[in-house]
């Protein structure tokens, strides 16, 4: 019997936010910039979308608020930082594993159909 928690597929916004926070805690604006960089500007979130997603993620325990502090690369305003929780890391790993399985399956089907597979 498995005791591991199962996670339903994440929305693109949640996935990108989790990835943005995977290496370090960030404030809202830094999360937005990281998401844009990770998605090659294909995903752009305004404050409404970003903080709406963060609210749901805070409620479900995927992220937590960190301290308010100054970003040395920006102005001297104190900003709320967000960090990944243990549950957030598990959800991200589960989602990435799901993607890996989908990619692996796609490669197999593409190979059997004689299609070119990039990155194989």
């Amino acid at each position: 019997m498995s005791t591991s928690k199962t996670y339903t597929p994440l929305t693109p916004a949640v996935l990108y936010i989790l990835m943005a926070l995977s290496d370090s805690e960030k404030h809202g604006y830094a999360i937005k910039k990281q998401v844009e960089a990770d998605s090659e500007n294909k995903v752009s979130m305004g404050p409404g979308t970003l903080y709406g997603s963060l609210k749901r993620m805070l409620e479900s325990g995927l992220v937590a608020e960190s301290d308010k502090k100054i970003d040395p690369d920006m102005d001297d305003q104190r900003r709320i930082y967000y960090k990944l929780t243990g549950a957030g890391k598990q959800a991200l790993e589960a989602e990435l594993e799901r993607y890996r399985r989908v990619v692996s399956l796609t490669k197999r089907h593409a190979a059997s159909a004689g299609l070119a597979v990039y990155g194989a």
Partner: peptide
């Protein structure tokens, strides 16, 4: 409740953008 928690960082982000 939402405004109390997020209005300030949202405003800050608007200014940043």
């Amino acid at each position: 409740s939402y405004r109390r928690q997020f209005a300030e960082p949202m405003q800050q982000m608007f200014v940043d953008l």
